[in-house]
Design a binder for these strands. Structure first.
Lengths: 336, 336
DNA sequence: AGTATAACCCAAATCGTTTTGGTAGTCAAC
DNA sequence: GTTGACTACCAAAACGATTTGGGTTATACT
């Protein structure tokens, strides 16, 4: 913070204008002068003040992302992939990623978005875990701030997003279970206002319908995407007079919870009880037995999201902004 | 970005000075005036420009952290806990966390640190994965930028850090294995310039020495902390004419790789071959068999680190800045 | 009446860049 | 020897806040 463009200019006997233009690669600076400037800059360790530059240029060179904090903190490995993907892509574009955390759909969250947007702290925002009728989307659209979303909100989406084809994925999974002979298939959902819940649940229902299985609402439980809630819901399901023969978790973490509950009850997983999840986190590969899941390339998705947003921020036009990704059904021992 | 303090002042028929002071809670503004200002600010959605404020106040209200990108990208779940911990703590202090990524000990990394420090982009920096003779520590000390470190570098540390007592932890683990009757205990290390390698390896050697077991260098392999490298090293170890009866991974990820290799060879894990890791990532709980590991409370450590740094940045003095944490040996089925 | 005090408010300087709108000097062309 | 083009540079005005160092009233006290 000590050395400014002034110091540099004085040392070189040049005006700050020339120094600035030399470093920015303008054509109206003699090649020799530019070299002198660059060398001296390096020598005295000059680095333009971020704040000053930001103020003048009216851009922050940063992308924002707000991590949803879930109350019972069993951190979802999904987010490592997501964050590193974003981070790598954004770093590759010479921008920074600014993150903070707040409970979903809270006043605090609202305040955060407002502050970032109004104060010009970030040039663009990444959102995920979209909700039905998501105020964030409306707000960002209204304020004309650039953003991309993982998963589109309800209604038609006139903004760039990447969507994982959750209904189709879940349908595939149900289909697989039906083929294995299951008829009593339970579903542990998430908060009903989450788009991933809505879509995955719809896929589940569609799958049942196709197999001509009457849906039994007693086989539905509502969790909160944590391992613990998967565990609780599963115990409740397995205590039914007519328990399910298969349990689907709306995400892998809850399926892991189901696994734990089933083990506690001494069930033989894969034959007596099938368990499957969604996301394809690396944990699923190592469980006993390995967990059937719908894999989505989270790291790559995050990179792509970052890439789209960076293009928008830098004013480049992007060809194909919306993407639908088919999740891949990984059949493992947990479903026989 | 549209509405500035000017607009607000004009609308209120006040000077920008008064508006600024009203919002900042100075005493020389009439209570009624302050109320008017606050209300109108909310009404027209005024939020002070971050850049302008930063420039004038000479602080960034942000903490920086650079994520090390490992070449074969099997993302380490350790970092979810670490990042969410940092993020939650920093968010609670009304600062932002700025992250980017770069390969450890690269020119790019150096450039990143320099830029952040010289341009005043961040008020403080968190580092981890410290290295023996770590230039980052010297650089940050030299430039008088505030920082905290997870793990101290070599030499005496006249800066705040939190350290996990790795030598003691590893010694406990070796001790446990020896008690189980193992004498040929292999160690898969990491890059030798990493402090965690140095410490954990030392603990391993100490453990052997205490048990009066001669170290056999053929039982040492050097990995890179990824699952894949744990897998490779284990295959190499298990192909020895006299293979080890126990394998210790310098981190859990490599132990997971060992598990995979052992399974491929049809070994009965826990009795024929013991496997153990270090970190206590959640994956270890679900493997078949569950993995013995040394647990460290990563989330809490990160929060504490964030807390210390925030205090430093805000100029509060902190009582106890250095902490040594004892890892907890979780004995599970993978070691019998 | 005169002066001190408190309560409110403000003009202007400042932070460190980028950008606008120039100015000098040289050289070639007419 | 004036015009024009071109090269290399620069002074000053932004950008939008905070802060310094007052200034103006109104009230209270000699």
């Amino acid at each position: 913070m000590a050395v400014t463009i002034h110091d540099l200019a004085k040392k070189l006997n040049l005006s700050i204008t020339t120094v600035s233009r030399a470093l920015d690669g303008y054509g109206d600076v003699a090649e020799e002068t530019r070299k002198r400037v660059e060398e001296t800059a390096r020598e005295i360790g000059y680095e333009p003040s971020f704040a000053a530059r930001q103020l003048r240029r009216k851009r922050a060179d940063a992308i924002g992302y707000i991590l949803p904090t879930s109350s019972p903190r069993f951190t979802d490995p999904f987010y490592v992939s997501f964050l590193t993907g974003l981070c790598d892509e954004i770093a590759a574009s010479n921008l920074d990623l600014i993150i903070t955390s707040s409970p979903p759909d809270s006043d605090q969250e609202k305040h955060q978005y407002q502050q970032w947007v109004q104060s010009g702290r970030v040039d663009g925002i990444v959102i995920n875990r979209t909700r039905l009728d998501d105020w964030r989307i409306n707000y960002l659209k209204q304020n004309r701030i650039k953003f991309v979303s993982l998963g589109k909100g309800s209604g038609d989406a006139d903004y760039p997003y990447i969507e994982v084809h959750d209904t189709a994925g879940m349908e595939k999974l149900v289909n697989h279970l039906v083929e294995k002979g299951h008829r009593r298939i339970a579903f542990i959902g998430a908060s009903p206002d989450l788009v991933i819940h809505e879509d995955r649940h719809t896929g589940y229902l569609n799958g049942l319908k196709k197999a001509k299985i009457r849906t039994d609402t007693s086989l539905f439980r509502s969790g909160d995407l944590t391992e613990e809630s998967g565990y609780q819901c599963s115990h409740s399901l397995l205590s039914l007079p007519e328990p399910p023969t298969a349990i689907i978790g709306c995400n892998d973490l809850m399926a892991l919870g189901a696994l734990r509950a089933a083990k506690e009850r001494g069930l033989y997983i894969g034959t007596e009880l099938a368990i499957a999840g969604y996301d394809g986190i690396s944990e699923t590969k190592f469980t006993d037995p390995p967990l059937t899941t719908l894999y989505q390339p989270t790291y790559e998705i995050a990179r792509k999201l970052g890439n789209i947003l960076v293009s928008m921020v830098k004013g480049k036009k992007q060809e194909e902004s919306n993407l639908i990704i088919e999740p891949e059904l990984l059949v493992r021992a947990s479903t026989g």
